[in-house]
Design a protein around this nucleic acid. Structure first.
Lengths: 210, 210
DNA sequence: GTCTATACGACGATAGAC
DNA sequence: GTCTATCGTCGTATAGAC
């Protein structure tokens, strides 16, 4: 009887274990907060000994930082939907759809980010001041161009962006509250679709793009 | 030399100390999360010995529960602004103004609530299922009446409420991010005024009430 | 690369003097 | 009602065998 499965190389073992740990950490940090999370809990969920976590990430804060960075990267890519559009109706609708879908697919990451910012962004303050600030200024310019071209009403671009962030992320961060108000049941496919449509209807009409 | 100040009675001492502790706890729980907060930190901020906290509130969780209940009560009263209005333009504008003002005056409480819900509402789940559910159904009925009377567009009342909660609370919960994007400075009176107006403009136009 | 055992510190809670 | 001293627990992190 020969061993058919190719043995994993060191690099593959490392990648697989880091992936396992990061997925477990995202869930535990989201559900318990940074202070409430324990390395033991994350290790159990990842199915690895606690000491291995320290081997791969050294400290609890290192591991946490990596989790926060991941959701941030995902959000940045959602802006692509907005950039490749000519008019606001299409661009903002696509951005809302993308952000709502992320809230559905990555609710844990969204919560970890929210928790981090609520506590004053002790770990990712530099990201706020560089990447996020640049990103925001770029989108503000896009929206201002749409306004200048008469394609939408003259609303303050920053407050519009805050409304988009707040509303889309609310479906992840306050998902438990929404579920409770939905009779204790998670939103169905149809209800998610309705949610996206409701948000797009109100916002697009609200900025005069419909 | 006589003592002019009337000595406080036991009940007054208790009320004053509980108030000191609750204010300190709200701030510490908001900034550090439940797990990150320590009784020592709260005691130092309140200017009382740590043992006194346990005397008045027994456990850390008791103290936390009281903090969460307080912000919830404040939010419930904000709905009064909505109930005494005949048309949606006036009622929802008043609700937005009230909720925005609470975000400004009680950012810590808002964050504690957000954190509690994000972690699955382990302490106030019963409130979600009773008080909040009843409250929500009442407002849904009001909005549906406005729609039936042709005073606003036929939007889904629940998703409208979620957008109002998300957007208004965002200015408290993500206040640090907003401040960073504002050049590291807190919003001025004028900027708060602009924020309220922007939210009202987009939402009211969005639901066809303008 | 994996895991057991443990050091070390911090926190919640309480006992008991005042 | 107030406060000091302290107990027991738990969590992060590491040392060292395998």
């Amino acid at each position: 009887m020969t061993e058919t499965a190719r043995p994993m190389r060191r690099q593959e073992i490392r990648e697989q274990n880091e992936r396992l740990i990061l997925q477990a950490a995202e869930k535990v940090f989201a559900e318990a907060g940074f202070g409430g999370a324990t390395m033991q809990l994350i290790a159990d969920m990842a199915g690895l000994p606690k000491a291995n976590l320290h081997y791969y990430f050294t400290t609890k804060e290192d591991l946490y930082r990596r989790v926060v960075q991941e959701i941030f990267e995902i959000w940045l890519h959602a802006a692509d939907a907005m950039d490749h559009a000519e008019d606001p109706a299409q661009g903002i609708a696509a951005y809302i759809d993308a952000k709502m879908e992320i809230s559905r697919q990555h609710p844990h990451g969204s919560k970890v980010w929210a928790s981090e910012v609520m506590h004053g962004a002790p770990v990712i303050q530099d990201y706020l001041e560089t990447t996020l600030r640049d990103w925001t200024e770029g989108r503000v310019a896009v929206i201002n161009r749409w306004i200048a071209d008469g394609r939408m009403a003259p609303v303050d671009p920053r407050h519009l962006l805050y409304m988009l962030w707040a509303t889309t992320q609310h479906y992840a961060d306050f998902g438990h509250q929404i579920e409770t108000l939905n009779g204790g049941r998670a939103l169905t496919d149809q209800q998610w679709s309705d949610a996206k449509q409701s948000v797009k209807d109100i916002v697009l009409r609200g900025i005069g793009a419909l």
